[in-house]
């Protein structure tokens, strides 16, 4: 079996201390492999955002191991961590987070340029990425001149431009109507099918259903079909497409 692109083992994150300590995540195990899209569902405060932030290296676990593409995050200094984030991880947000003063192609090229890639090569890669999300004709358009669905396609292209392997999507359809949201999910799914690993946080079951499996978080714990803490075995086994963990 291939090395997971994202691997979490017994990851715990606690906010506060003593009486007031809140376990945002409590012993979470999770693997996401290349070509796999995993959806995370759960009520507000269940730990979804913390999970995404820890997976993306924006927050650090108090205990447990987080590995991105086989590299343990804990062994890295801030600079190395930022570099790993830039090279391996892309984000897709509900509100797109595009730079309004840059064109679509410039937005997509930006992370590569930040990583030291020449402007010319970055633009070339950006055009490829925009083609992959089926909007090559919008390369020189500014975000303000695009629809929400088009902007989110740009964001997905930006998230996966170059050779980045992990896309973390936080309610990517939250600002879109249902038909547009579905088209965006189709694009995300296609990029994952093409070899990326994806972690999708959503509160919309309809969009979670595009994932290969859905995990449910409750009070920082991944629960199984009966609401109890899911055992690691069942979670880590690569489930067939369409299954739930």
């Amino acid at each position: 079996m291939t090395t997971p692109v994202l691997s979490l083992r017994a990851v715990t994150r606690t906010h506060g201390a003593g009486e007031n300590a809140v376990h945002a995540l409590d012993g979470v195990d999770l693997d996401v492999r290349a070509g796999e899209l995993v959806a995370v569902m759960g009520p507000s405060g269940s730990g979804k955002s913390t999970l995404l932030n820890i997976a993306g290296g924006l927050d650090t676990a108090d205990a447990g191991v987080v590995e991105i593409a086989g590299t343990p995050m804990s062994g890295l200094g801030p600079k190395q961590r930022a570099a790993l984030r830039r090279r391996e991880i892309g984000y897709v947000f509900q509100d797109f987070n595009l730079v309004p003063a840059l064109t679509a192609a410039e937005n997509v090229a930006l992370p590569l340029e930040l990583d030291g890639v020449s402007a010319r090569r970055a633009r070339k890669a950006a055009l490829v990425a925009l083609g992959e999300v089926e909007i090559p004709e919008l390369a020189d358009r500014f975000p303000d001149d695009m629809s929400g669905g088009q902007r989110q396609r740009v964001a997905i292209a930006r998230a996966l431009v170059g050779r980045r392997s992990l896309v973390l999507a936080d309610e990517p359809t939250g600002a879109l109507d249902s038909v547009t949201g579905e088209a965006v999910m189709g694009v995300l799914r296609a990029r994952v099918d093409a070899g990326a690993a994806g972690l999708l946080v959503t509160h919309e079951p309809r969009f979670a259903a595009w994932a290969d499996r859905t995990i449910f978080l409750r009070d920082g714990v991944v629960v199984d079909g009966t609401g109890r803490r899911a055992d690691a075995e069942s979670l880590l086994a690569a489930s067939p497409r369409g299954g739930t963990a």
Partner: peptide, 23 residues
């Protein structure tokens, strides 16, 4: 809560199937 979660898992499974069929 267990009844709810069991059903949630089953309903989600159905939703996955419909979505796959649809796409």
């Amino acid at each position: 809560r267990a009844v709810v979660q069991l059903q949630r898992t089953e309903t989600m499974r159905g939703l996955h199937d419909y979505t796959r069929l649809r796409s």
